[in-house]
Write a protein that binds this DNA or RNA. Structure first.
Length: 160
DNA sequence: GCCAACGTTGGC
DNA sequence: GCCAACGTTGGC
């Protein structure tokens, strides 16, 4: 099975890459995805070992800050059933359609790659995240894109 | 804070 | 099933 590559958006005011690094084992569940296309990627296409670029949206700067690895495949997202959660979904009662995966940070970028750098680079400027109005919070990334970004960013392995 | 682009909802 | 209205996303 071939490893896939993804871009995960997060608003740093809610959950930043730094927040991920501060967690035990630098691992978190990617909860709260409430878009069917994004869910389908997680449910159908995410495998353990896939690598994810972590992108800050709605932020200054908007940039990719590091890399996380999928460490657990899709399972039911309990926040959809919790009335106290901001991700609560009234309609999920009975049959919860929402899933999440677990990811673990493995590298941080010495030089975070900003949106404008992505737009400038000939191998990156076609990326979905750059498309105007693209709201999809989980996006497939090609191997070339991933490796180019990883190299430009100066990925530093996170020590255990 | 503005607002364009998008996904979802609901009336018909 | 259409599509207008709405709420949300996210760059700027």
């Amino acid at each position: 099975m071939k490893r896939r590559y993804w871009l995960l958006k997060t608003e740093p005011s809610v959950f930043s890459f730094e927040d991920l690094l501060s967690l035990p084992k630098q691992t978190t569940s990617w909860e709260g995805v409430r878009n069917y296309q994004a869910r389908n990627f997680m449910r159908d296409d995410f495998s353990v070992g896939d690598l994810c670029l972590i992108y800050h949206s709605n932020a200054d700067p908007t940039a990719i800050f590091g890399i996380a690895e999928v460490v657990r495949e899709a399972y039911s997202d309990p926040t959809a059933l919790d009335p106290k959660s901001k991700y609560f979904d009234e309609k999920a009662k009975g049959k919860n359609p929402w899933v999440m995966v677990d990811i673990k940070a493995i590298s941080r970028f010495k030089n975070p790659i900003t949106r404008s750098e992505l737009a400038r680079h000939y191998q990156l400027k076609k990326m979905m995240v750059l498309k105007k109005g693209c709201r999809l919070s989980i996006q497939p990334v090609t191997q070339v894109e991933f490796e180019t970004i990883s190299q430009l960013g100066g990925a530093i392995k996170i020590k255990l």
